[in-house]
Design a protein around this nucleic acid. Structure first.
Lengths: 347, 347
DNA sequence: TTGTACGCGTTATCAT
DNA sequence: ATGATAACGCGTACAA
């Protein structure tokens, strides 16, 4: 008979009250006597009533979902342990409260903006988590224009209308440099991410300033697109220098791993001839030969925190910026003292 | 003035027709004269009318979205290039037609089923892409029960109510084994994925039968959970055997990479002392020292195909099983002839 | 507490 | 064949 799922009208009929009152009772709102409320809840339970998210969406103008748009080449994401951890973290915040994550993965920046527009045009999400912040990031204005709430992963480079959930990379890079300098390295290079990405340029700045603080040159920097291939290319370039570095600080693990391979194939012994450090602490790092000294960030925690902050923001709460525990150096086998100094002429 | 987005009622008013007719015109349905249709379309365009996905969802009982539930430890997914590629592929099929992907990442199998239930209870999606098929997979019956359409990535081990989009691993494993046997290996091990996962057990079966076909033993198999850590553990176990293998076929790249590190640390030279092969062709593989012989699968293509098949299924089309180009061996530096046979007593 | 309009597009029923 | 009218899906909000 009742082939359709029960609606509040059915519940109202069963409880002998009006539709509106059922809604009140089910949402724990005042204006319903305790007895009536109980009768209504019992009826709802009896009928197996489940709220219709769609109807609720339509009437409350809410999607009950968050959006995440990732704009990177799949090859690059594939190697990067960050996003799965981030997403897992987001999920832990969403699932318990019945919210969902709408994920979009695009390649170009243009497709990225189109993706946000699409999410907004279709009212797919109430807010977005903005990751991989860029210089003068157009997505902040776009989200504002589209009426989307947002939180940013990290602090934008300009005043932002949205709260930031930040995890400071600086201590990670800084202690990496300190670690290397402490080992005796004087010529240290950095294989950086794209300068347009804020975490790329910030890690780069941290690197440079940490070196300069030690009275060393922090200008041996090669920019990459974060891909393993580009990390390999950068490594080859650095090793081909007349005065090659004795240590390389990579801005992610896949590049460090690729760089290690390139260096080893060039006949170098890691870490005796060349120290290598990564960033993000991927699982494989500890099993490499040698194991990878890297920087660990609590990506999952980051996702969880960002998602719940965004939910609160959507609820109308005031949300202040949130600082998470900063990145932390994990010393393993790929870093050691540099080889004894050979006369520059020995080459 | 018009603070709200225009609705079809506004369009109807502007075009001087009824709401219903506007709907007909906008959906290209018969019963509207060409002239009127044009007037309506012009009015809609004029007003900047955009359909409300929510209203459409409510009235047509469709979500216009697909679901993907991934049930693996984030650490494991993080290392695996498969999922990002898969998701990117799904996206390429969805974005052009205004559909969205709802992603859920969970850890336990229990949470996984709950996640499907949640997706269905909230009518978040019209269908799901079922990946990582398991033996006697409960998700097929669950999807059926929940009224979700579905496609499976690969063939289930029992008659399925849903079409399968399959990519045969067997040729990849088989040619890997052939490659190794051709190089002279006689004692070859397999570091397998979880036996409960069909692709895990199928790769394992392919491995065993390929070896037996060559008159060799295909029983040197260690099961893992697909994680780099477990790959490292399995490798250590194999190398500790009285008669250790001269080649190891791993069922994914992260484990192969970890295994390579473990072997190297144990003093073995790859590939001279031990050949190693991976599965999935991650980007870093080609930069390792030595570069990783592996099997490549068109994961992105897989995602694209699965998503569009599912969309057709949801549209009501009949969808047959689809076979994609099978996995293919990529020979690189980590595989070579085994070391000269030493007398067993030499140990 | 109740009744009812509302959000918005779809579709079945009627009228011309 | 062309178009209008109204009901529908389902929960929320507001006046009564």
């Amino acid at each position: 008979m009742a082939k359709h799922r029960p609606t509040i009208a059915d519940v109202a009929l069963a409880a002998g009250v009006s539709k509106g009152l059922v809604s009140f009772a089910l949402n724990d709102r005042p204006g319903v006597s305790a007895m009536t409320r109980e009768r209504i809840l019992a009826a709802a339970d009896e009928l197996g009533w489940r709220p219709s998210l769609r109807a609720r969406s339509l009437s409350t103008d809410r999607a009950f979902a968050l959006g995440l748009v990732i704009a990177r080449d799949p090859q690059i994401i594939a190697a990067d342990p960050f996003f799965p951890a981030l997403i897992a973290g987001i999920e832990t915040a969403l699932a318990p409260v019945g919210q969902a994550l709408v994920l979009s993965m695009v390649v170009s920046e243009q497709a990225e903006l189109a993706s946000y527009r699409q999410l907004a045009a279709h009212d797919r999400v109430d807010g977005v988590i903005i990751t991989d912040l860029r210089q003068d990031d157009p997505r902040l204005a776009l989200a504002l224009e589209l009426g989307l709430q947002a939180v940013t992963l990290g602090h934008p480079d300009a005043p932002s209308p949205f709260p930031a959930v930040a995890l400071d990379d600086d201590p990670g890079i800084r202690s990496t440099v300190d670690h290397l300098v402490g080992l005796g390295h004087r010529r240290i290079a950095h294989v950086a991410g794209p300068a347009r990405m804020l975490h790329g340029s910030r890690r780069r700045n941290s690197f440079a300033s940490a070196l300069e603080l030690r009275g060393l040159h922090g200008d041996l920097i090669v920019e990459t697109d974060f891909s393993a291939s580009d990390g390999a290319r950068a490594t080859a370039e650095l090793l081909a220098l007349a005065d090659p570095p004795t240590a390389i600080v990579y801005s992610n693990d896949p590049m460090a791993i690729a760089g290690m391979g390139v260096a080893q194939r060039a006949g170098l012994h890691i870490p005796d001839d060349l120290s290598i450090t990564g960033f993000d602490d991927s699982d494989v790092g500890q099993y490499l030969n040698p194991s990878l000294t890297t920087v660990t960030t609590a990506a999952q925690e980051w996702g969880r925190t960002a998602a719940s902050a965004l939910l609160r923001l959507i609820e109308g709460d005031d949300v202040a910026d949130i600082e998470l525990a900063p990145a932390r150096l994990v010393i393993r086998g790929s870093s050691a003292s540099p080889p004894p100094r050979t006369p520059a002429t020995a080459r």
